[in-house]
Simulated assay, not measured.
Amino acid sequence: MRAPPAGGAVTVAPSPGLSTEYPFVLPRGYVDSSGTVHREGVMRLATARDEIAPQADARVRANPSYLTVLLLERTVVSLGTLHEVGGYVIEGLFASDLAFLQDLYRRINQDGHTSTEVDCPACGHDFTIDVAGDAPGES
């Protein structure tokens, strides 16, 4: 498991083998009960079981939007110094961090990577950025 460097962007370099874990930095971060902010984490690729098992959960049947919480709970393997990333952590994320993780989940499980092509608005130059890297946040 590779952790992102403190305070810096993370670039997921292509490797000869299959990448199954992707480091990320949340835009804002999860604030625990002691006030500690946790921003750096790792998400793993989802398995078929990860996507199928939550369908039987009563919370998902009652509210299909809860599927997101269960998928992220299963695939976010670390976040800061937390011992466990349970549903209560995912539910306690700021909306911008939840949206970030949803997008990261989609990118790594559908696209297979965390990079995207962008154009510079000033000069029009094309370049690649890693969307799992550090982003400025507000507290």
Rank of each mutant, 00 (worst) to 15 (best):
L45W: 08
L45D: 04
L45H: 11
A46I: 09
A46V: 07
A46M: 12
T47K: 06
A48I: 15
R49Y: 06
R49V: 13
R49G: 14
R49T: 14
R49E: 15
E51M: 14
E51W: 07
E51C: 14
E51A: 03
I52Q: 08
I52W: 01
A53N: 11
A53L: 15
A53K: 13
P54W: 13
P54L: 13
Q55D: 05
Q55E: 10
A56T: 09
A56I: 01
D57L: 11
D57K: 04
D57G: 00
D57P: 00
D57S: 07
D57T: 03
A58Q: 07
A58E: 11
A58W: 00
A58F: 03
V60A: 06
V60N: 12
R61W: 00
R61M: 01
R61I: 01
A62M: 13
A62E: 09
N63E: 14
P64I: 09
P64A: 11
P64Y: 06
P64C: 11
S65V: 09
S65Y: 07
Y66S: 07
Y66L: 15
Y66A: 08
Y66V: 02
Y66D: 07
L67H: 10
L67I: 05
T68F: 04
T68R: 14
T68V: 08
V69M: 09
V69G: 01
L70A: 00
L71G: 10
L72Y: 03
L72G: 15
E73D: 07
E73L: 00
R74G: 03
R74F: 04
R74L: 08
R74T: 00
T75W: 07
T75K: 10
V76Q: 00
V76L: 03
V77Q: 04
V77R: 08
V77A: 03
V77I: 14
S78K: 15
S78I: 12
S78F: 03
S78P: 03
L79G: 10
L79T: 08
G80P: 15
G80I: 08
G80K: 06
G80M: 02
G80T: 14
T81P: 06
T81S: 15
L82T: 06
L82M: 08
H83P: 14
H83L: 10
H83Y: 06
H83T: 11
E84T: 12
E84A: 14
E84G: 01
V85G: 03
V85S: 02
V85E: 01
G86W: 00
G86P: 00
G86F: 00
G87D: 05
G87R: 05
G87M: 01
Y88H: 10
Y88L: 11
Y88V: 11
V89M: 02
V89R: 11
V89W: 09
I90Y: 09
I90S: 13
I90E: 01
I90L: 08
I90K: 03
G92V: 07
G92S: 15
G92I: 06
L93Q: 12
F94R: 06
F94W: 14
A95D: 14
S96H: 06
S96T: 13
S96N: 05
S96P: 00
D97E: 11
D97R: 02
D97F: 05
D97A: 14
L98P: 02
